[in-house]
Design a protein around this nucleic acid. Structure first.
Length: 744
DNA sequence: ACAAATATGATGGGT
DNA sequence: TCATATTTGT
């Protein structure tokens, strides 16, 4: 099998400005890439160009992205140009690259190279323990989540506990945050664990204090490529600057690609100032602007441009329409009565367009906040339109997967107290609060891992007989499973462990409708495990990637947040919920004044520029929030759209639809006539309106549910039905909520 | 020790 | 409104 030949014409595909960005190889370079201007092409072509021209060997380029998806895409596209996959690349997310570096130098910060990367759950549990141990903190007034936020912010800024002066302490828990942070960091080291922030923090600290190690990396890296530079936080910036400030002036080749107008991650510690300051930070820097947009029609670009022009402190770019067929429909702004009607409008338009032959994958509904997806999901289910929620509940966040992962972590790393804590009584082994307290006490007294304490305590009569035998059995099991891991490999060991520990059995016994799905997920986990050479490699993958590869771009409507949509494009984009308090969000209005308002506006800009041909913005006059109806005003962003790029649509076009219960509403210039929400009015899925029906349902029967669509009954218990729905999976519902499918 | 009942708070986003 | 945390009951 021959490898495909490397491409020769890769430069010819670029326009002059893109080509300049690819061929300016020496010295610092900032590429300001507007939305849809071919940023990814430039980045990947530049990477391939470095290798093709012999300027660098694959391992001499450091290429950093924010998301795993971007890293994967870059890897694939570079391979396409080269005609073969490149080996030994330093290409990955900030976190993945730092994890790799930290494993090499772990001992410098007191970790072992096999340290565990903690997830958010673990962090929280650990922080709660630390706060408990510190004593005297009212956990009602000072929730652990607050401390986590404070610590994360410090880590985002590259501040180790030692670098924080008492004066800089947060007012959290009466200036005790710094001390708690210190205790937390010590405990992490004891546990041989690092949280996400630590990956960057530790590595940056090492590069700052160990000139020899920094010099090693300087010898290695000749070129640095950074994607989405506008989203870097301070510690990421410091890390990059350390690596880029090579003693060898011919190696100060850092190329950052970004767009200040798409900086939307300040809540994660990102500092837009990093990109605004680039020329000062890297003397002799050149700037190349990419302003030819090949994605969108003129009205879409005009709407986006008019909006973003309201922001101050921009580096400044003007997008030109670059496509041949850039004429197109104006951006539609639709006013609706309530959020249900909004969902109906979107569903109907998708249905209509689909009938004209447009594939569903070319429609996207982009919302401000995750909870907004629900009303659209319900509507799409009723219409029978398949959809995909991007970034919804992730595979590795499900309870059964977390449990299984804890088993594997503990198998790999017997000192992983947090993992041990999670599994020791799952399934139930009779070890409750008092038993756990005894374990903790023993561990703390001798300063040993929980598991070791458990082994010892199982030989004494501290515990009651039942938990004692169970615990002894479990610990012996792990000795055996570790043996299997050595001899027969991690896949066999994992399967045996989940079986013999009783974990799989626990879900087999579980009668709830979700149980079979959970067992399926466990099988899927074992399959995924087989893709990795070692258990350690798999654990890292899960901690850093948190996603499965099976997210094929199927024939489905795409539903996601505006944040998740960055970098994507669709023919038709719906932008619902443009209302004051929702978008811009109340929180951004409350906290940072103009600065965060500008970030919301950038988010709106990102949203509009996702569309190739059609963009439909909407707002509803009434929306249910926390379960009760609230009326809302149109977003100020609607008034900022240039009139000649948009066309406003009111209730009139919506009137034609079949839901005749919607009262007529009149539009003013900037909003809807005020009318109180119909709190007690009739509502099509209110159960009281449904004529009472004898429950004559039987197992295996097809039924219809207003929210979940069609499904099959799997079990009946009095008035409770277990139903596997075609689109949403198994659920337990009351019988009065469903109709026989034959009666619909 | 575990299940059920009740209270509380979230909904801003990802490695 | 829903999901989780805490309290109460067996």
């Amino acid at each position: 099998m021959n490898a495909p030949a490397p491409q020769q014409d890769y430069l010819a595909r670029l326009n002059p400005e893109q080509r300049l960005a690819v061929e300016t190889l020496d010295g610092p370079l900032l590429v300001l890439a507007g939305a849809g201007t071919g940023k990814t092409s430039v980045l990947t072509t530049r990477f391939a160009h470095l290798l093709m021209t012999g300027r660098a060997r694959p391992w001499q380029v450091l290429a950093v992205t924010f998301t795993n998806k971007a890293a994967r895409e870059m890897r694939e596209r570079v391979a396409t140009i080269l005609g073969q996959p490149a080996e030994g690349l330093w290409l990955g997310t900030f976190h993945a690259l730092c994890a790799r570096m930290l494993r090499r130098h772990a001992e410098i910060v007191g970790l072992k190279s096999n340290f565990t990367i903690l997830d958010t759950d673990d962090q929280m549990r650990l922080l709660k323990q630390i706060m408990e141990a510190a004593g005297g903190i009212d956990s009602k007034r000072w929730p652990a989540q607050g401390l986590m936020a404070v610590i994360q912010r410090w880590k985002d800024r590259g501040l180790t506990p030692a670098r924080i002066t008492p004066a800089e302490d947060s007012d959290y828990a009466n200036n005790r945050a710094r001390a708690l942070y210190d205790a937390y960091q010590r405990r992490l080291i004891e546990l041989n664990a690092a949280d996400f922030g630590d990956l960057l923090l530790h590595v940056t600290e090492i590069l700052r204090t160990r000139a020899d190690i920094l010099a090693d990396y300087h010898r290695t890296f000749r070129y640095i490529l950074v994607d989405e530079y506008q989203d870097t936080n301070l510690v990421q910036y410091l890390w990059l600057r350390l690596l880029a400030q090579n003693e060898d002036p011919t190696r100060r080749n850092i190329c950052c690609v970004g767009d200040d107008d798409q900086s939307i991650y300040s809540w994660r510690g990102a500092e837009i100032e990093n990109i605004l300051r680039f020329e000062k930070d890297f003397p002799g820097a050149r700037i190349v602007r990419l302003e030819s947009n090949y994605r969108s029609t003129k009205p879409i670009l005009a709407a986006a441009a008019g909006l973003i022009a309201r922001n101050e402190g921009r580096l400044g770019k003007t997008l030109r329409a670059g496509r041949q067929d850039a004429e197109g429909d104006k951006v539609r702004v639709v006013s609706l009565w309530d959020s249900e009607e909004e969902a109906r409008m979107v569903g109907e338009r998708i249905e209509q367009a689909q009938r004209k032959g447009h594939p569903l994958s070319e429609f996207a509904i982009l919302v401000r906040a995750g909870f907004q997806t629900r009303s659209f999901e319900e509507r799409l289910i009723t219409l029978g339109l398949p959809y995909r929620v991007v970034g919804g509940l992730k595979f590795y966040e499900r309870a059964e997967i977390r449990d299984a992962m804890a088993y594997l972590r503990f198998l790999h790393q017997p000192a992983d107290d947090l993992a041990f804590e999670r599994i020791v009584n799952t399934p139930k082994r009779g070890l409750g609060d008092s038993g756990m307290r005894a374990l903790h006490q023993a561990a703390r007294a001798e300063n040993i891992p929980l598991a070791l304490a458990a082994e010892r305590i199982a030989e004494t009569d501290t515990l009651k007989p039942k938990p004692r035998t169970a615990l002894r059995e479990l610990m012996r099991g792990f000795v055996r499973w570790r043996g299997i891991n050595e001899k027969e490999g991690h896949v066999v060991a994992a399967a045996t462990l989940l079986d013999e520990s009783g974990y799989t059995e626990m879900w087999k016994q579980d009668r709830s409708p979700e149980a079979p799905g959970r067992l399926e997920n466990l099988k899927e986990l074992l399959r995924a495990l087989g893709d990795y050479q070692t258990l350690a490699g798999f654990l890292d993958h899960v901690a850093l990637v948190m996603e499965t590869d099976e997210n094929a771009e199927a024939e489905r409507v795409q539903l996601m947040t505006l944040h998740a949509a960055k970098g994507l494009e669709f023919d038709t984009v719906f932008l619902p919920g443009w209302e004051e308090g929702l978008f811009p969000s109340q929180r951004s209005l409350d906290e940072g004044g103009d600065k965060s308002l500008e970030e919301e506006r950038r988010l709106a800009y990102v949203g509009i520029t996702r569309a190739r041909r059609t963009a439909t913005i909407s707002h509803a006059a009434n929306r249910r929030i926390y379960g009760n109806w609230t009326s809302s005003l149109p977003s100020r962003f609607l008034d900022e759209l240039p009139e000649d790029a948009i066309i406003r649509e009111g209730q009139s076009t919506i009137r034609a639809n079949r839901m005749a219960d919607t009262p007529s509403v009149f539009l003013g210039q900037s909003g809807l006539m005020a009318r109180r929400p119909r709190i007690t009015d009739a509502n099509p899925w209110d159960t009281r309106e449904r004529p009472p029906r004898e429950s004559s349902l039987t197992k295996g029967e097809r039924v219809f549910h207003q929210k979940f669509g069609y499904g099959t009954i799997t079990d009946i218990d009095e008035d409770r039905l277990d139903i596997t729905f075609d689109h949403t999976g198994p659920k337990r519902v009351l019988d009065r909520f469903v109709q026989k499918a034959s009666e619909v």
